[in-house]
Write a protein that binds this DNA or RNA. Structure first.
Lengths: 152, 152
DNA sequence: GTCGATTATCTCGATCGTCGAGATATTATG
DNA sequence: CATAATATCTCGACGATCGAGATAATCGAC
């Protein structure tokens, strides 16, 4: 196999990985009776919580790229099944903070945290040098992809 | 940084890459007035065409996980804007083959092929050994992820 | 302080994608 | 042949998203 062919195969492997990674989110959605937007929203809220922040409705809309009307409906759905709570911000009472319920947080940690744990475990066989190569490669690929995902 | 932290960071980089890769598809959708399902369908049809096959409506439904009613609507949309053509199979006249138009094929090649080209180009600086590490890592990660995307 | 502009969220009505149930047409089977 | 199985389509319903506009709270200029 030529070097060029090898590079193309690696690119294909990356694409296949991407498909499977999306399927992980889809599976979580199926298991919990949610749609993909709801899952993306929960992940965004969970990420913010891990950073010690509490997303407002508006910031959530930016994170998942939805208009305010859709965010209201989205939060209604998540609140109805008990995954999040609306908490009016006492500093600025126009704002609505979003807090994940314990159960939703636990379910998310179980599902996505479990994946993260297995991924890092699968990397234990790699030397520091090898991981450095992988990291550099990921950064390079992400840079290229980001250029394509925004302007050309 | 400990080895464990480094592994976690690499996992986070992979997740970030995944987000950007999804955004590439979203951008193609925006540019061409399509939704994400339509893009996934076009990609599936394009992949099949590259393998010399012609997807039927049913197989397309399996590829993008839609019921037959939705596939009919999907193909209606794509046909209406001239991206695909329905071609009744003369062997089995119940079946409907899907052929991509030249313009749609060109647009897809331009967008996704351009990304693939840039990705492989960005790998030119990597030695065969380094690429082998990356490839092994991708295969390992994909195996873990696939286990999570199907049964746990 | 007061009033208009700005900001954050929500309500309402409309549109579009998806689906289940069932219809239609074609092919396989006994 | 008659019947079952297969591939797609039609129809009606539902749900996610959106634009326009309403409501409520904060900010800024005076």
């Amino acid at each position: 196999m030529t070097d060029e062919e090898e590079r193309r195969e690696v690119a294909l492997l990356l694409r296949r990985l991407n498909v499977e990674l999306d399927a992980v989110g889809q599976r979580f959605a199926d298991l919990h009776g949610l749609n993909r937007t709801d899952v993306r929203a929960l992940v965004a809220i969970m990420d913010a919580a891990r950073r010690g922040e509490s997303l407002t409705a508006g910031r959530l809309g930016e994170a998942v790229d939805l208009r305010s009307a859709s965010v209201t409906a989205l939060v209604d759905r998540l609140e109805r099944v008990g995954h999040v709570r609306r908490v009016r911000d006492p500093e600025d009472r126009r704002r609505v903070g979003l807090q994940m319920s314990e159960s939703a947080m636990a379910a998310g940690a179980e599902h996505f945290g479990g994946l993260a744990r297995d991924l890092t475990a699968a990397m234990e066989g790699y030397s520091a040098d090898e991981l450095a190569v992988v990291r550099r490669w990921l950064e390079d690929m992400t840079a290229v992809i980001t250029r394509h995902s925004r302007g050309s």
